[in-house]
Design a protein around this nucleic acid. Structure first.
Lengths: 217, 217
DNA sequence: TTAAATTTTTAGTTTTAACTAAAATAAATA
DNA sequence: TATTTATTTTAGTTAAAACTAAAAATTTAA
């Protein structure tokens, strides 16, 4: 149906489109895809001809409805495979991304349907991100960034924004994991760092950490 | 490491090399790869530069030791995924090949090590073919073609030569499966067809069938 | 509101892996 | 052995997806 490269572009546009409501810029896409702006323009033209994106010169690019559906299918596959790797093959949450990046492109409806069943229809991946169902629907959690909480507020860790291996290993090392309860004991106005009570332990973390953790209050 | 196309060529050469002890011909490879002889020549030159094959113009091509190891790794992955699909995801043995053709190219040592463990180190795939271990070793079964048996001989069905969906569905329909005991009740000299006793049923099959079933006597 | 800086697009190349057509080599046959 | 036939290789193209360098459009700033 679509080439590897086309699928990766669609996915990248989907991820970048979330933040701004405006179109995705050529440069932003080039950055995300680790390529040059000129290559992006070429590919966008192709995707536009295939009706996967809406594109006007110099105006940025948007996913069409078909494009959005395509993106959600790929994301569904990616996240289901991540669950598989962690729950069945003993991968840790910082090891799954790269492999899932490859597995997400395997083309078989049945494979994903059966994998979903085998995993018992999981709703979230190992990083707390929602898994779209076969129709592309998924629940958007009412989560907020840890950095937006004030002293005294409490919540549960439900996701991470940065899924890099480095960040996840830091969390592991400090015993911070999905589902743990967190309370803000203190917050430093100066640099935004926080003193947290995570279950029974107390820990001071920098803004780099607080802006990458999602909390459900 | 190697491109998708390179891996598929290596695999094809491995499969074709089994039969004749001589080199694999350009035309045979073209047939196997569903491409033109000229494309094959191009690719063989590249594989030769990468030391995966041994090649002299007009002399056919052979896998080098590295090439053989590479082929066995891909075959190991293919067959492990087939076991996964059948045992965990309820695929039938005629549905697994295509998907495994894609999965076999996923690049992760850990993935295959863990998958092997998860499946409890299977020795054979759903079609009875041996699965190489992590070092590339596998047991060669002392199997023979059903067509080579004579009236009165008995054995167990241990594999199929043709793994096409059509053939496998034919076997399913007639209740012929791996592990079943088979006895030759009669054999027609004229066309090679056989009257078989398979467990409790009696069935007449054509040569097309007998030359594609492996028996262990 | 021009001029400078930035972003984006165009034009032209490169690489990979295919292709066609024609030439070269090897094998088969008269 | 000479000639015909079949196989294999070479030469030159094509398409996808990247690239560089330069031109065009947009945005920012003087």
């Amino acid at each position: 149906m679509f080439s590897l490269s086309e699928e990766n572009y669609i996915k990248a546009i989907f991820h970048l489109q979330k933040h701004p409501q405006s179109g995705v810029s050529t440069n932003a896409l080039a950055e995300e895809m680790q390529t040059k702006a000129s290559s992006v323009t070429d590919m966008i033209k192709k995707l536009s001809e295939k009706k996967l994106v809406i594109y006007k010169k110099y105006q940025g690019v948007y996913l069409s409805e078909t494009g959005r559906e395509t993106a959600l299918k790929i994301i569904r596959k990616h996240r289901l495979w991540e669950v598989f790797l962690v729950e069945k093959l003993d991968f840790s949450w910082d090891e799954v991304h790269e492999v899932a990046e490859e597995l997400e492109h395997i083309k078989s409806e049945k494979l994903i349907l059966e994998l979903d069943k085998f995993l018992n229809y999981p709703k979230r991946d190992p990083h707390g991100d929602p898994i779209p169902d076969a129709k592309g629907n998924f629940q958007v959690a009412n989560k907020i960034l840890l950095s937006d909480l004030s002293i005294g507020e409490k919540g549960t860790l439900v996701g991470v924004k940065d899924s890099s291996s480095e960040f996840l290993k830091y969390l592991d090392k400090n015993n911070i994991a999905l589902g743990k309860s967190i309370e803000i004991l203190d917050k430093e106005d100066f640099d935004g760092s926080m003193l947290l009570k995570i279950e029974d332990q107390t820990l001071r973390v920098s803004t780099m950490v607080t802006i990458n953790i999602y909390i459900k209050v």
